[in-house]
Design a protein around this nucleic acid. Structure first.
Length: 913
RNA sequence: GGGCGGUUAGCUCAGCGGUAGAGCGCCUGCCUUACAAGCAGGAUGUCACUGGUUCAAGUCCAGUACCGCCCACCA
């Protein structure tokens, strides 16, 4: 039994996405269309969703970045691939900390007041809430995710994967504990990685200090600094060894002001003799470059800072002061002692902590590091040999390899609570943990740690205490492509779907994430975890600016979803993309909350809806399957034309989808649907549907049904809901299946007929010309005309004759004469020209002859301008001799045609008198 | 300092060697039984600038300017 086809009256004339979309979202999920089956046939096509942070809501960037791969996924599924798209969310250690600690601050508390356990409870509660919101939003975007495989970076399985990865890296000698300069964020009191920094331009000063020589305090060297307080930790002054001014001083000593410490003058190539005074103060414990120099010259490392950004005992006499207060005091000291040479205004960039929002301090501390040099080298080798992964667009490859080439050890520990606690334990002996930083064991769990600790440190180990730090969030993210598939176990999913086919993400996290995944993937699975990397662009605001929280210029996707529907937003975003990875700008009016581009997409959806409504009401309740495909001998000109357009567009769309041309595909379909199908085919077919000729009517129904069904399938990856809604109505499958799992249309070259399309273009132009004449003459839409198409070209005559009914119908011509010559010339006639065809519309009664004249003159002038261009080309002997003969020939023909057309119009002009 | 994008109609953008395009907006008619979220018709451009290659250049090459990103930063 099939459901009754709704009558036209049942279908509103405006498409309502708000009823439709949730219905199909539920349907897809309940019926499990997107649940992958590793035992099912088909080449695998697998992806993991870049897991959104559990920090609140999805933003426009998510909507965009997730819709793009959804288009690809839906296409691949319809192409018969065995598709898996794994959803999930990320615990986002630092980001969640920031949110929760802000909340606590408002309650007048800190996380330390709460304690680790209570804080984590809050974190889990927050995660639950945020995750629920995000999942709802992902569903609302209509993404074809396999929710049965939903993961969270801190769920049991992934936790196990993280510990396993850490242990294996440690056992391979790639994870170690060491002292190093880390980017220290005094606000969050944690180390942060290089890529969690945000450079901000700051207007500061460059202070020039006099450093007296120990041998002769009246002589001094001038050093400059933007961070005066660090001088308390200076352990040398460096000059360039080739610098004639200072070469003789190398080896002598400076008496460091305030501290009265003797520090050496050293020579190092790093110093640029041409910058400033050519002397550099060296603070190995608080500057990355100085750190390197300090190591080269075996200088002492003096740490002057506490973790909260105040000065420690080494900062005496400013111990306990905040770094910025100490800065002023140091400057004041130099000033008072006549050692301040000068102060310059100086604008420079200062690295700030992304999350903490304050300037970071390079700080010497004991952290956990991961040596990634071997992994990076393997990734570079893969890229060199196999160009794997393949970046789309290709230009991002350089960004990726460039970063891998200059990697430093990765600081993976964070002094936070929310995250994966580092699986390292310290032995407790006599109630104490040994001071030796290397006294620890790495284990999968506490029991194993205790055993190992006793083996290593003896039976006197009473217990073990786990390192309180958590891992950098990107550590677990790096495992995402395989940890989600069940790694470290050899699961069916892992065997079937790894490596992933595609990774779709933003350029801003090529370093953070893509490179970490390829490194971890190569380390643990021996393979690059994905074949292609599609790098999407940004969604910019209405002014072309990057949307960001700090600027507050974000556009809320939910607002647009509420206003226009999911399909409209999806289509509007993707249609703007050019090639792959280009940024898109979203039209938006902040006063009204309206978006012209999303509205245009909504209108497109409505157009599809109404075209479908027209088709449905004319099929007399028959489904495409019931109607069957029309037999070839019954096909009329318009039928063959629309089928040709369908098949040629299908070929182009498939071509685009295969090369990630998602925007191009969207635009091709827009034109096929709106221009070809709605404006022409449907209009042409109307008389046949109302007419007496049963065969012609049935053929039209068959073509309408088959073309509409193909169009729906073609468009489904971009606009999944409306296509599902209409497809269900059209095919009357009673929700037994989904358009999402129907085969994607194929292009049959047998139906593509370029000659026919060209001929049909002539018909279209002729109709347009007549419509133009009607409009120019000021005729009412329902007023009928008489028309004459005059041409001596027999082919054109034949085409026009075949299309005579179409022309008459679409131009309201009650009589239409197609002829090679006229027995009697009409007196007053509006005229246009198409090809060699004179398009004539005789006008009875009062007409504005002057208007007709002006119109003809304008047409002639236009043609003349065109002809002039071609003529000058043909008059150039070099063009004749050097250009491709075919091009020359074409130009000659074009000129001849233009001249003939002008001639015809001239004649008409003269006849007007 | 290095690198990557971009500069085409009022706005947002296609086009990437042979006659300047789309959507939105604008103008003129139309509520024509699919659609006024629509239909028909129309107007609109020194294709940033300067050179070069070519018979031919928004289209290829070089440089310049401006806009936007990314990376690295000289203390």
């Amino acid at each position: 039994m099939t459901a009754a086809i709704p009558q036209t009256a049942d279908l509103p004339s405006q498409y309502n996405p708000f009823e439709t979309e949730p219905k199909w979202q539920r349907f897809w999920e309940e019926k499990g269309f997107y649940v992958a089956d590793p035992s099912a046939p088909g080449d695998p096509f697998s992806m993991v969703l870049p897991p959104p942070n559990v920090t609140g809501n999805l933003h426009m960037g998510h909507a965009f970045a997730f819709t793009l791969p959804d288009v690809v996924t839906r296409y691949k599924r319809m192409r018969g691939y065995n598709v898996l798209w794994v959803p999930g969310t990320d615990h986002a250690s630092i980001a969640v900390h920031t949110i929760l600690e802000n909340q606590l601050r408002q309650e007048g508390k800190s996380r330390f007041d709460l304690g680790r356990e209570a804080f984590l409870e809050r974190a889990w509660a927050w995660k639950e809430q945020s995750q629920g919101t995000i999942k709802g939003q992902l569903r609302r975007l209509g993404l074809s995710l396999d929710w049965s495989r939903d993961r969270f970076t801190m769920d049991e399985g992934l936790n196990r994967a993280v510990i396993e990865a850490f242990v294996r890296l440690y056992e391979a000698g790639l994870i170690y504990r060491g002292e190093y300069l880390v980017n220290w964020c005094p606000a969050t009191q944690s180390a942060v990685s290089d890529i969690e920094l945000d450079d901000k331009e700051v207007k500061g000063h460059l202070w020039h200090f006099r450093y007296p020589l120990a041998a002769d305090p009246k002589q001094y060297l001038v050093v400059a600094t933007t961070r005066p307080e660090t001088m308390l930790g200076d352990t040398a002054v460096a000059v360039n060894p080739t610098d004639e001014r200072y070469r003789h001083l190398i080896g002598q000593q400076i008496k460091l002001p305030i501290k009265d410490r003797l520090i050496p003058i050293i020579g190092d190539e790093y110093v640029d003799a041409s910058f400033g005074s050519g002397c550099v103060k060296i603070t190995p414990a608080h500057d990355p470059n100085d750190f390197e120099i300090g190591k080269r010259h075996h200088l002492p490392f003096i740490n002057i800072l506490n973790k909260d950004g105040t000065l420690n005992e080494n900062g005496d006499p400013f111990t306990g002061l905040d770094r910025f207060v100490a800065r002023k005091k140091v400057v004041q000291w130099f000033e008072e002692h006549g050692l301040l040479e000068k102060v310059e205004d100086y604008t420079h960039t200062v690295p700030h902590s992304d999350r903490g929002g304050v300037p970071i301090e390079p700080l010497l501390s004991i952290q956990w590091f991961c040596d990634v040099s071997g992994m990076a080298a393997r990734c570079l080798e893969e890229e060199r040999l196999n160009t794997s992964p393949r970046f789309v667009p290709e230009r991002w490859t350089k960004v990726y390899t460039g970063w891998l080439e200059k990697l430093r050890p990765w600081c993976i520990s964070r002094q936070l609570w929310w995250g994966h606690q580092i699986p390292a334990w310290y032995p407790v002996i006599e109630g104490q943990i040994p001071e030796d930083p290397q006294a620890f064991v790495v284990a999968r769990h506490e029991q194993e740690a205790l055993t190992k600790a006793r083996e290593k440190f003896g039976a006197e180990v009473e217990s073990v205490q786990q390192d309180p730090d958590v891992l950098d969030t990107w550590f677990s993210s790096g495992l995402w492509p395989f940890s989600t598939l069940g790694w470290p176990d050899e699961t069916e999913d892992f065997k079937r779907y790894y490596p992933n086919s595609l990774m779709s993400t933003g350029f801003d996290i090529i370093f953070f994430w893509v490179a970490r995944m390829t490194m971890m993937g190569s380390q643990f699975t021996g393979r690059i975890p994905f074949k292609d990397v599609y790098i999407n662009g940004l969604v910019r605001d209405e002014h072309g600016a990057k949307m960001s929280k700090s600027k507050g210029n974000g556009i809320d996707p939910l607002e647009l979803l509420d206003k226009y529907g999911t399909d409209a937003l999806r289509y509007a975003l993707v249609k703007e993309v050019v090639g792959a990875g280009q940024d898109v700008r979203l039209a938006y009016d902040r006063k009204t909350g309206e978006s012209a581009s999303v509205e245009a997409a909504r209108n497109f959806a409505n157009k599809i809806w109404n075209a479908s409504r027209f088709v449905l009401m004319n099929l007399e309740g028959q489904s495409p399957a019931q109607l069957g495909f029309p037999s070839s001998e019954h096909l009329e000109l318009a039928d063959r034309w629309i089928l040709s357009r369908l098949h040629s567009t299908t070929a182009q769309v498939i071509q685009e989808l295969e090369t990630y041309g998602l925007g191009e595909g969207a635009r091709l379909l827009y034109s096929l649907i709106w221009d070809d199908f709605c404006d022409w085919y449907i209009e042409l077919v109307k008389p046949r549907l109302r007419g007496e000729d049963i065969t012609s009517k049935r053929t039209a129904q068959q073509v309408l049904a088959t073309v509409l069904e193909s169009i729906l399938k073609l468009l489904h990856p971009w606009m999944p809901h409306i296509t599902e809604e209409i497809w269900q109505l059209l095919t009357q499958t009673a929700q037994a299946t989904s358009i999402a799992v129907q085969p994607y249309p194929e292009s049959d070259p047998a139906w593509v007929d370029p000659v026919l399309e060209q001929e049909f273009a002539l018909v279209i132009q002729t109709i347009s010309s007549l419509r133009n004449l009607r409009a120019e003459a000021g005729l009412k839409p329902n007023q009928s005309i008489t028309a004459i198409l005059l041409t001596t070209d027999l082919t054109e005559q034949s085409i026009l004759t075949r299309a005579q009914a179409y022309i008459q119908d679409l131009t309201k011509a009650e009589s239409l004469q197609i002829t090679g010559s006229l027995a009697t010339e009409p007196k007053q006639v509006a005229a246009g020209v198409v090809g060699t065809i004179q398009v004539l519309m005789p006008l009875a009664g009062l007409v504005d002859l002057e208007a007709l004249r002006v119109k003809l003159q304008k047409d002639i002038a236009k043609l003349e301008k065109e002809a002039q261009g071609i003529r000058s080309r043909l008059e150039n002997p070099n063009f004749i001799s050097k250009a491709n003969p075919e091009v020359v020939q074409t130009n000659r023909e074009q000129l001849a045609e233009l001249e003939a057309q002008m001639q015809l119009l001239q004649v008409r002009l003269q006849k007007l008198g």
